[in-house]
Design a protein around this nucleic acid. Sequence first.
DNA 1: CCCAACGTTGACGTTTACGTAAGTTTACAG
DNA 2: CTGTAAACTTACGTAAACGTCAACGTTGGG
Lengths: 144, 144
Amino acid sequence: MVEFYPSKKGGEPISRRYTITELTQMFDVTPRTLRHYEEVGLLQPERRGGQRLYNDRDRVRVQLILRGRRLGFSLAEIAEMLELYDTDPTEVAQLRDVLRRGDHRLREIEQQMEELQALREELLEMRDRLQQALNEKLKGSDPS
Amino acid sequence: MVEFYPSKKGGEPISRRYTITELTQMFDVTPRTLRHYEEVGLLQPERRGGQRLYNDRDRVRVQLILRGRRLGFSLAEIAEMLELYDTDPTEVAQLRDVLRRGDHRLREIEQQMEELQALREELLEMRDRLQQALNEKLKGSDPS
DNA sequence: CCCAACGTTGACGTTTACGTAAGTTTACAG
DNA sequence: CTGTAAACTTACGTAAACGTCAACGTTGGG
């Protein structure tokens, strides 16, 4: 397994458990959201009785999911990316496949970064123009 | 008006007109999409008879809208940003307001860039690990 | 003038990502 | 044991962003 999720190798057993409301408070989401993520297969918490019990791995996954959402990815895309982390490819062919898909995703992300960069620069230019205009308007009329 | 949209100052009148299908082919979207953008107020093409006629400004706006969508923004957010470009603030107060909203959006975008950067680096690390694993598996067994 | 291609307006359908309400269970504090 | 808070399931509702007909208007070439 990747060192992506908290583990106990070389440390204390960080293995906590979280109730659903604890997680909702951590991430400011509703229980429905977490149950939804489970419905679509993004989470599989244990159960004590009927109750869900999330561990640290689940918590990190929630964090990754929410970041993905903020970045505009669909839950399906996020599932794909989490699979990239998770699948422990046993065959060479499968390994190659995961690598290929990962590289593809990487290119998309770098494309997205470029577009975001462009948007940022346009907004910066606009800000400069507006600032200029503001200074003009204030020139002499209000030297406070 | 900002130099954001094509204008004729200092050049030939670049003012072309586009039919709806021309635009759909340019951007690989359906007519329904462009009409939808019009429904929600993002576009206001002229009409010849009943027919829509888009100009260069419209074309650029479509481009900006689609980029916004790829970056995960909602049409409402995109509308806000286009307003930032468009509004030619006459009053100082309004100017200040546009500046404030633009700066807010800028901070959000920079936040988004950081998260995207983090995601990228995680994917890169994963790729390295997988590449490493692949090399191990191929060591000796297939020196092609 | 005619018709095929293009365009238009409703208006209902679909997908995604949850919201919300109702009714039922489970888990402890007292 | 018993109430009360927390959690659960089921199921219908919703907002956004279009998709998808159906039925009708427009227009330019022959």
